[in-house]
Nucleic acid binder design. Structure first.
Lengths: 338, 338
DNA sequence: TTGAAAGCGGTACCAT
DNA sequence: ATGGTACCGCTTTCAA
């Protein structure tokens, strides 16, 4: 039972056919629930397959059918809360739908180009999910001509399906919340302005911030804006800059929860308290926001992965053409930091 | 140039052969740097392949050669700091070595069994890395008979290669540190005692804790031990239990940084301060331990993934037989929480 | 040094 | 309802 075939636990479709006394064609049909198989035959085949612990070889299947039932996800980095949430959401859906999942870290524009070219040329996946990796025109061209199913998360790309949050709205909601709390000197910790991967999220959130200030008759003081890396350390350093000002902000909008964590640390290190001396809020719904008492805007990250995967599967399985752009709701969660 | 073959950007080995005016066999040899190819021939082939943007189809290659150049990593959950660090480390090595990486979340014993059976039967990967997923005997049997390359991380399995930390030592070092700080009532926040996945880490760390107490002539007071889920909430709840005691511990050893974060939150919520009222430390080297001022034992998680992947590749490429068990050093990092 | 051809393990078309 | 068989794109003998 451990190794019925003597070949490392692997049985082929021929073994099953022999065991069931039918042809390989019939086995193939029976196991895939195709029509025109007598139910008694199907039963014999199923039992034979079971007792031999048979699984169709994905590579053989891919070669013969043209479909790999594999999807690949590309993210800028893997060891980040945000991306691992996306992965987890997508993996749950894909495995349930019988798809395998490959992952690639794509930290630079060069790596991104290589990734796309390789995905197109080697065709090892039926579909791609690109997370926070705005594509260059040439890459879009290649993908458009590839008949790969492509979904993007975190950036809009008219050529492909996208799962998005409304970052403008996030910026506005955050700013509005701080305004409502009575703050009028509201600072912002933004992301790197010239990120080599052309990450668009910070720009949009910052724009929402500006819009909301304007609509309240305030002006976005450039001196209250400090850009740092989209990380804990980036937030900490940027916050330190703001706290050094003669007239520092009374509230700060950090563009991610991790930046907010850094900002809270910087504040504490300066001997100031949150929210009394300075209110801080972030964006994400990071799992540690609750215990740190951080006000945040939950953008349901795992859900973004779930939806992208679900829609991609629908696309690949040819069920229904998914919506071109799907927006995930985000909602304010008020905690002690504001 | 975008689509030279008119088939979705895909060129086959035959296209390359035609373009270079040689046979497919020669193309195959030339592109893989096999011997007995005239250098002039190799050059023509290489250029043809380049201009056609040719990549060998991994599935065809797999079918013909028996090697997939794919490795699969199984983790209990994907959206966790620890596992995403491991993934990131492994992915960096694997992609550099020309291996693709598949991932699976394996949250239950049933899922684990299915994962193993499928990996063995479908043979879509040459190698497996099992992270914190102690294997049942039957699963070990199946894998042993499969000639898959298997590495384990986080648990010992004599049949396979393992990357490990010395959890006993970690327990001792942590306890010693708290003892050195003058604490005599040292509590411990352990993991679920009857975890269905038979996660062994908590047991070992707790044993080290007991050993060290004993060696200092203290007795491990069962009342100072509280077990919770291996998570932030688990740590928080367990800590709440300990803080309710008439005579609570003056120091607490949390078996992971996330549990420690929960414990710090619980402490703060009770109006107590760290480390004055109660010292807290964790294990992991979590990226937020620094800003929260948490004393921890860094177990170089990313490095565990790097080493496992590197050794697995060596095993699969038949270079050198890797060491059976590889231990990753861990080191104490003292911060404000103790 | 190179080429021809037999697989690898399935799928899918065409017969029966 | 079932079987025969030509692929899918590559690797790997075996001959030349």
């Amino acid at each position: 039972m451990t190794d019925p075939t003597g070949r490392g636990g692997r049985a082929t479709i021929e073994d099953v056919a022999a065991a069931a006394g039918v042809s390989v064609a019939t086995v193939s049909r029976a196991l895939r629930d195709l029509p025109n198989v007598a139910s008694s035959t199907k039963q014999r085949v199923t039992e034979a397959a079971l007792s031999l612990n048979y699984r169709a070889d994905p590579s053989a299947r891919h070669l013969a059918s043209g479909r790999s039932r594999n999807v690949e996800i590309a993210v800028p980095v893997l060891n980040s809360w945000y991306f691992s949430e996306v992965l987890a959401g997508a993996e749950a859906v894909l495995s349930e739908c019988g798809y395998s999942l490959s992952i690639s870290a794509v930290p630079t524009p060069t790596a991104r180009f290589d990734f796309v070219r390789n995905a197109v040329a080697s065709r090892h996946a039926d579909g791609l999910i690109m997370v926070d990796l705005p594509l260059a025109d040439l890459e879009i061209d290649m993908l458009e001509n590839s008949n790969l199913g492509v979904f993007t998360i975190g950036f809009k790309c008219p050529s492909f399906h996208s799962v998005l949050v409304d970052n403008l709205a996030i910026g506005r909601i955050a700013t509005e919340h701080l305004f409502d709390r009575g703050h009028r000197r509201i600072g912002i910790l933004t992301g790197q302005p010239n990120d080599s991967l052309r990450f668009t999220v910070p720009k949009d959130r910052a724009e929402g911030y500006r819009q909301m200030l304007t609509s309240h008759g305030l002006v976005a003081d450039p001196g209250l804006s400090c850009s740092g890396h989209f990380s804990v350390d980036g937030g900490r350093e940027a916050m330190n800059q703001l706290l050094k000002l003669d007239d520092p902000p009374t509230a700060v909008f950090a563009l991610s929860d991790e930046m907010a964590f850094g900002a809270m640390a910087a504040t504490r290190d300066c001997g100031l308290t949150t929210p009394d001396d300075v209110a801080i809020m972030g964006v994400d719904g990071h799992y540690l926001a609750e215990i740190t008492g951080l006000t945040t805007i939950d953008q349901h990250v795992g859900q973004q992965g779930v939806v992208a995967a679900r829609q991609l599967v629908a696309l690949l399985d040819g069920a229904v053409e998914p919506a071109r752009q799907i927006e995930i709701e985000s909602n304010l969660i008020v905690r002690g930091s504001t």
